[in-house]
Design a protein around this nucleic acid. Sequence first.
DNA 1: GTCTATATTAGGATAGAC
DNA 2: GTCTATCCTAATATAGAC
Lengths: 203, 203
Amino acid sequence: MNKQKDNTEERILDAATDIFMVKGMEGARMQEIADKASINKALLHYYFRSKDKLFDAILTKILNFAFPQIGKVLFSDLPFLERVEQVIDIYMTLLLKHQQLPAFLIKEMNREGSVLFKFIEKQHFAIQPILKEIQDAMDRGEIIQMKPEHLVVNVLGMCVFPFAARPMIKNVALNGRDDLLNGFLEQRRFEVKTFIIRAIQPQ
Amino acid sequence: MNKQKDNTEERILDAATDIFMVKGMEGARMQEIADKASINKALLHYYFRSKDKLFDAILTKILNFAFPQIGKVLFSDLPFLERVEQVIDIYMTLLLKHQQLPAFLIKEMNREGSVLFKFIEKQHFAIQPILKEIQDAMDRGEIIQMKPEHLVVNVLGMCVFPFAARPMIKNVALNGRDDLLNGFLEQRRFEVKTFIIRAIQPQ
DNA sequence: GTCTATATTAGGATAGAC
DNA sequence: GTCTATCCTAATATAGAC
């Protein structure tokens, strides 16, 4: 019930999220997190015994937030093509708001011994109904036939990649201009939708 | 002229490439690189004064290899759709052979102070003719109209993303089965081509 | 050019006072 | 609960013999 404690713990979690998100587990420094939370390292260890435990805490927080049930809108009774558009919209909104997420997750899932795997394994069951729903739409002729997994990867790739590769996009395509980056990424909401629709609509 | 030296230097570069590729600059350990090259840490520092310099050396090597002039086939006189297929083929072949490349580059380009930027900035000039060539094809009516940059990002995203997110693909889509992963990624050579063609062919 | 041994530094973690 | 001071270890880097 200690108000001060909750306050500090939250400040720590917020600071840690910011730092870990940008620098990853290996690049982040406890000192930097402490500074950002306006406390010292000792107090950090008082709240979370180790860097590992602190990282686990924020990773869990991030994952439970970032893997929201996208499925939801996919199971409505709208025409499938419209549902696809909705999914892309939701995804793009999430990504535009949390632009470091893709690079962070890619970094983390490719780090050996990452706790991310325990979480990811559980997602296998979540994806099955989604693949089934896509297959059904194909069988009804609402979209062309292809392996549902590849459709999912295509959508994900188009949405996620430019965020993961933001520094390259900025420098290669936008002449290094920071001010153009958000506009370009915002455009993709429309671009990805129309591209996908063209690719999967029958005939 | 010392044959032995060249030999050792190459062994170091090879070992360093392997380790850095998988673990990144921050995750790699000089000891591990030395072990893999069958020498000791001291000798590592004798050849490359510091970890930073060693990393720069292999990064340059990797980049000059990974950004080959994809442009090449894009400037042939074949129908544009065929050229697109060729480009995807070349890219997929490269990625299938060097599957850690995407995650490594994403990791590195999102690391502050990365030397990657000096390299990336130079690529701006290389991309302009490619965008122009795409625009020309659109103007000739060979493919539909869209912003060339978005087409490039779409192709890149579909090709690169599943490699960057391999651990997730494996666990979420393939039930954790390692033996299915290469087959799935190999399928994408065909899947991406047909998907892209459907999306950009006129009418 | 290659090694063993050692220095140096950074960064995570703990002790103990308040 | 929060701080200062300190410990400990891992990892980069160097000295110096061969």
